[in-house]
Design a protein around this nucleic acid. Structure first.
Lengths: 203, 203
DNA sequence: GGCTTTTCTTAACGGGCGGTACAAAAAGAT
DNA sequence: ATCTTTTTGTACCGCCCGTTAAGAAAAGCC
């Protein structure tokens, strides 16, 4: 089982969690390798040994961030109706960007100011686009199921949600409270289109 | 009139415009002084001579950005009704963050990932908060003028607009088109509360 | 003409950045 | 025990960062 060689003296997942925290708080460029290694409780060469260079570490951190702090996205997508789905997403996002004891805002948005055209930037943009696409798919299904009006634009509706969540992330980083964001989520949901007619699926 | 000493060989306003462009495209941390000076068409010591250090240059650039690229805020605030005011702000913002030939997004949001607690960060956050407060004041007046329902929350309404505009900036930086943002602005305006009753001011 | 003042250009400064060479240390393999 | 493999800690690399020292150049002042 155990491979030969000196065993790693630290838990890679715990170290990665620490890296997530630093990138989340400081963004990609501002997070220094010395700072990262210190937060991870590890020497710099060990970081390179376990994760590769800074760019690879960032991508690993982003993946971990998504799976540990963006579970609300998948949960929201599983709600039975489009309306519940959208509401759960906004509420989940408002909570995620205002978690007590964690950095305010969203790792993905916090790192907007990475060098343009860099791999880091496009990874973040693609991440947002992928989530948007999942919601667009969900809303297309909702139209098929008669859960949304057939003339509704599922892509635009998804874009609306992602745009709001990006805004939430910026405002949370500015110090906006969870309660204020939840109130904004409520307000935004007032635009959400009602089903075409009550309990009338057209299958 | 003319002071003694060798005259400055460049136009400080033009140089500042070039600095705005760089900060806008790259954010505070990613914008290097070598890069800034080159874009400004000036040697580094001249930058220090004319603007002070990087932080002061950034603040000067932000001030210029506000007065040259955020005129739509003041214009929107002068609209006769709260509804027109809000709509003009969102449409103006959608245009501003998608100006052809200029960086996508907003300088103020692009620099979110400045070191937390730094002067640069708090200057940006205060800038957003100040704009939000101007809209809150405008909406308070609208309630007095019977232009908004008296039970409406002017601060929350203002926060909603600022949050949307922050989201617009992030999405524009991601490549979202002006048309798509304008559609989102339309959608958001659907939530906007109507006046209490038609053409009925209560003065 | 010199003298003063200001900006110009050139060339560098210390420091922190991302990244690594090296050898000691700790495990399995034989 | 000795060899091989992998991680560890230390100490360092070259580079680019923001910033500045030094002196030449260009204006007004007298």
């Amino acid at each position: 089982m155990a491979r030969p060689g000196r065993p790693r003296a630290f838990d890679t997942d715990e170290a990665l969690d620490a890296a997530v925290e630093v990138f989340w708080r400081r963004g990609f460029t501002n997070a220094g390798l010395t700072e990262l290694a210190a937060a991870m409780g590890v020497n710099k060469p060990s970081v390179y040994g376990a994760f590769g260079d800074k760019a690879q570490l960032f991508q690993a951190a982003l993946r971990r961030y998504v799976e540990r702090n963006m579970g609300y996205v998948t949960e929201a997508l599983q709600k039975p109706t489009a309306l519940e789905c959208a509401r759960a997403f906004l509420i989940g996002n408002a909570h995620a960007v205002t978690m007590p004891g964690r950095p305010a805002g969203c790792l993905s948005v916090q790192a907007v100011a990475t060098p343009e055209g860099s791999n880091e930037y496009s990874v973040l943009a693609r991440n947002r686009a992928a989530i948007q696409e999942r919601f667009a798919d969900r809303f297309r299904r909702a139209i098929d199921e008669g859960d949304l009006p057939p003339d509704e634009d599922p892509g635009e509706l998804a874009a609306f949600l992602i745009t709001l969540s990006s805004g939430f992330a910026v405002r949370a980083a500015d110090g906006t409270t969870r309660e204020a964001l939840l109130a904004l989520a409520d307000r935004a949901m007032a635009t959400f289109p009602a089903p075409p007619s009550e309990e009338n699926n057209r299958d």
